[in-house]
Design a binder for these strands. Structure first.
Length: 581
RNA sequence: GGUCUCGUAGCUCAGCAGGAUAGAGCACCGGAUUCCUAAUCCGGGGGUCGUGGGUUCGAAUCCCGCCGAGAUCACCA
């Protein structure tokens, strides 16, 4: 149950009855939300202010009419007009008790919704080039995309997690040639790796595998042929490497889409270009050189262009290179048409900061190939600056100067990595300080939240120790006399729990998983705060020797907190240990 | 030069599809431990929300100009 949704509906209905002259579009602007200042009550609505002016009425007059309507509502203890025309509600205890029952009943599903109405969403993230292990730069987008996918799935969307493999083009040839050098090395030659090649150690096993499989036979064929064989081996090995890296953060994709399958005669690129041509979205023309910074090798030539400007892009985009092959973007248009034809009307791409210039053309492509039937949201993850005690930090174990994802996970663990990366908005650059992340104090939000969860379990242990006769099974908790939850401090905690469904829905709509991280931190704080009240006032302790029934009711509250923390951490992909060592 | 993102307390950041006196953590100051894990809690000081306009009953939030920081700019993927 979502109290805000409940009252939003009730207030909407009341307004419709009381002010039939107000249109549906006007009523849609009414918001029911928790006031920023808790002193103003539990719920607040702007209904009167929204409606007043268009109806030529005084806001307070409208408000008073609505207040009269709710004055005798049993679920409302007080309702009053405030400020310029806000209406503040204070809800009766039974409403909060219903929230607790609802959490117990729904369990893992408390917060789950049908917001997405089962619509298919394709979320593409990571899509790192298969030329080496994952580095930190990829990690933020990987965690963000994975969590967004979980969030959307939890909110009723049919989510497909997709990875686009760039397994064609010049860099893959370079990869093949680099692997070939390692092959020679495996055969006993002393090699030197020229600049422009991939120098990382991670290609050594690929060279060894090639030697084991082919003996010396690759040496007898032309380099470019041997490189193609080496390329296949290397690509497969790199994808295995990347999958293993992602698995360390519990990130998995449903679909690995190979760019290569788009190419070739009768392939998607060819079909898409033919279709675009038919639709008049392609023409032959010239582009102006970019102003300010003219590339050295700029060549003014007539080329095949996609009318991206018709769909909001800044310039039209080339589709065919001077050597006759397709541009990367041509493949990307075909790829997004492929997504659309697979039934996705909602697409989300998670990209790194270096792709910010790519957003408009991607959206243009999506609009064009779907004839405006699909939407594309591009979430840019800004840079992560690695620090150690405030100093810029570099580690390198596996690949040149880069800090790898595996390095980070090894250093701070998967939970901390995920949580810290999610405890920021995606579109702001962030610092990631290893020293802080490794700390096990309240300065570290991961441990703060996990500790709150562990504490809920610890309370149950205490209860079992101190009141061994008390039945605290699931069914006993469900039958607890929940009305005993009545002090203001307890109800404040329930209020935080009540905000969970609303928080999830808002985060899903906005595509902002960080809100989940902030919420669960807030819930942990509310819980720790209530726990500490038991120090000053033993009556507020969860476990009360003299009153087993009150204890049981309080344990039901603790269980609800446990459940909601668990639900939030599940979306974030962070584990919820029952005790911290 | 174009485009995109960001600019909120000394520091790191929230601010929920414009709302009522702008919040949290760190740091700083002062408290709480015979008692459910002090891995925690309570209190205090500290901000012209970069800046100037505009829209609105109402702007940190939306629009425009300017200043500053970062990213990016055909034929790489």
């Amino acid at each position: 149950m979502d109290v805000f949704a409940l009252f939003s509906a009730r207030i909407g209905n009341a307004m419709q009855v009381l002010f039939p002259q107000a249109g549906a579009d006007l009523l849609a602007r009414i918001v029911v939300e928790p006031p920023r200042d808790p002193a103003h009550g539990d719920l607040s609505t702007n209904a009167a202010m929204v409606v007043a002016k268009p109806l030529g009425m005084n806001p307070r007059e409208v408000a008073n009419t609505l207040v009269e309507h709710f004055r005798h509502d049993a679920d409302v203890t007080s309702v009053e007009v405030a400020g310029p025309g806000f209406i503040n509600f204070r809800l009766a205890a039974p409403i909060w008790h219903q929230v607790l029952r609802s959490i117990a009943e729904l369990g893992d599903d408390y917060g789950r919704s049908t917001l997405g109405q089962g619509e298919a969403v394709n979320i593409e993230y990571v899509s790192a080039n298969p030329t080496g292990p994952m580095h930190v730069g990829h990690t933020r987008g990987a965690v963000f995309g994975d969590t967004l996918a979980s969030l959307m799935a939890y909110s009723g969307y049919e989510v497909t997690r997709e990875y686009y493999i760039n397994d064609t083009g010049g860099q893959t040839i370079t990869l093949g040639r680099s692997a070939l050098l390692r092959y020679r090395e495996a055969l006993g030659e002393t090699i030197e790796i020229p600049s422009g090649f991939y120098p990382g150690d991670y290609l050594i096993p690929v060279g060894q595998a090639l030697a084991a499989e082919h003996g010396r036979s690759l040496l007898d064929m032309p380099e470019h042929e041997a490189a193609l064989i080496a390329r296949e081996k290397a690509l497969a090995a790199m994808m295995d490497l990347i999958r293993a890296d992602l698995a360390q953060l519990n990130i998995h994709h449903d679909v690995f889409f190979s760019e290569r399958t788009l190419h070739g005669a009768g392939g998607d690129i060819e079909l898409t270009l033919a279709w675009l041509r038919e639709m008049g979205m392609i023409y032959e023309g010239r582009l102006e050189a970019p102003k300010g910074k003219t590339p050295d090798e700029w060549e003014d030539r007539e080329q095949t262009l996609f009318r991206a400007t018709d769909y909001g892009d800044d310039v039209d985009r080339p589709l065919i290179k001077s050597d006759g092959s397709y541009t990367y973007f041509a493949a990307d248009i075909a790829y997004h048409r492929n997504k659309f034809l697979r039934g996705f009307k909602h697409m989300i791409n998670v990209l790194g900061a270096d792709h910010s210039g790519y957003v408009k053309r991607l959206q243009a492509a999506t609009k064009a190939v779907s004839l405006n039937a699909a939407d594309m949201d591009v979430r840019i993850c800004q840079l992560v600056r690695l620090l150690k005690n405030g100093e810029p930090f570099k580690m390198s174990k596996r690949s040149g100067d880069l800090v790898t994802l595996a390095d980070v996970v090894e250093e701070v663990g998967a939970d901390a990595t995920r949580f810290m990366l999610l405890y920021r908005r995606n579109d702001a650059a962030m610092d990631f300080d290893f020293a802080v992340v490794k700390e096990q104090t309240k300065d570290n939000p991961v441990f703060y939240v996990q500790y709150a969860h562990a504490r809920t379990h610890s309370i149950f242990k205490t209860a079992a120790r101190d009141l061994p006769a008390l039945d605290v099974s699931r069914s006993a908790l469900a039958a607890a006399d929940i009305e005993r939850i009545a002090t203001p401090a307890e109800l404040d905690l329930v209020r935080v729990l009540a905000a969970w469904p609303r928080t999830v829905a808002a985060a899903a709509v906005a595509h902002e998983p960080h809100r989940i991280a902030f919420y669960v931190h807030e819930l942990a704080a509310a819980f720790h705060g209530f726990w500490a009240k038991g120090k000053d006032d033993p009556q507020l302790r969860f476990v009360n020797f003299d009153d087993p029934m009150l204890t049981l009711a309080r344990l039901a509250l603790v269980d609800a907190v446990r459940q909601v923390i668990l639900n939030a951490l599940a979306i974030l992909g962070v584990s919820a240990p029952e005790e911290l060592s």
